[in-house]
């Protein structure tokens, strides 16, 4: 990002402030949503969706992942893959158990 001129940095700053607004709104939304009268699984789903959107905004714009080089994208995709392995394979051992 070394050859960015002043104009494009100021463009960036506008994006940062927009993202900031979106994050604040989403934070309030997720808190309000938690008071909705819906089932637990729906509430979990909703909260995780909002968190994922917020997370993507931070990673994409603050961390510039949206315009990042291929090497880094590859490393992160691999990490995400193993993250899901770590999350879900152990869970199978709860549902899939020999009962004596």
């Amino acid at each position: 990002m070394s050859d960015h001129d002043t104009v494009s940095i100021q463009e960036h700053i506008r994006v940062y402030l927009t993202v900031f607004g979106a994050l604040a709104v989403l934070t309030v939304t997720t808190v309000l949503a938690s008071y909705l009268d819906i089932s637990t699984s729906e509430a979990i789903f909703l909260a995780l969706v909002i968190a994922s959107v917020k997370g993507s905004l931070v990673a994409g714009y603050f961390m510039h992942l949206i315009s990042e080089k291929a090497t880094i994208t590859w490393i992160l995709m691999m990490t995400a893959l193993f993250f899901f392995v770590l999350m879900f394979l152990p869970l199978m051992s709860i549902t899939d158990q020999v009962n004596i």
Binding site: T27, I44, L48, A51, G55, A59, F62
Partner: peptide, 22 residues
């Protein structure tokens, strides 16, 4: 350091609903 800081923020974004809201 900014990348690190945003990551810490990102972790909190997930911690908040997981611990407090659901």
């Amino acid at each position: 350091i900014g990348l690190y800081w945003h990551f810490v923020d990102l972790v909190w974004i997930f911690l908040f609903p997981v611990l407090y809201l659901i």
